[in-house]
């Protein structure tokens, strides 16, 4: 399974990458802004996109909306990771059409389990 990681925090990007590798999957790309993420999604074959919300360029939520509106990417699996713990965010993520939400700080185990669940469906 090929995973795209988009987070403006390099340490967290690496942490997610380690989790992906631990789960036995492949990091297709790890980017620090929304537009690069969008380009990677369009250019590459991605099974799961793990997106942060607050990123320069495009936010994670905008990115999900763009994915759901795109004919090619409509069925893309998306996991949102955010440091914003307000309840209103969960609603916004759900409305935008993401497949899952994990709040920072997350346990690596938790992330691995989610990815395994997606892998089963892919």
């Amino acid at each position: 399974m090929r995973v795209l990681i988009a987070d403006d925090d390099a340490d967290l990007r690496d942490l997610v990458a380690i989790a992906v590798e631990k789960a036995g999957y492949e990091v297709a790309a790890a980017v620090g802004d929304g537009l690069s993420a969008w380009e990677a999604l369009k250019a590459d074959e991605i099974d799961l996109a793990v997106l942060d919300i607050s990123m320069p360029g495009l936010t994670g939520l905008e990115l999900v909306q763009r994915i759901r509106a795109d004919d090619e990417l409509r069925e893309q699996h998306v996991l949102i990771i955010t440091a914003n713990a307000q309840p209103s965010i969960a609603e916004a993520v759900h409305l935008a059409g993401a497949n899952g939400l994990i709040t920072k700080p997350f346990q690596v185990r938790e992330l691995v389990e989610f990815m395994r669940g997606v892998a089963d469906r892919v």
């Binding site: 340490d11 967290l12 942490l15 440091a83 920072k104 346990q107």
Partner: peptide
């Protein structure tokens, strides 16, 4: 909230 939780996420994640 965001700025404090992000570094804490790194600390906890790497410790784990």
């Amino acid at each position: 909230s965001h700025e404090l939780r992000t570094p804490l996420s790194s600390i906890l994640g790497y410790v784990e």
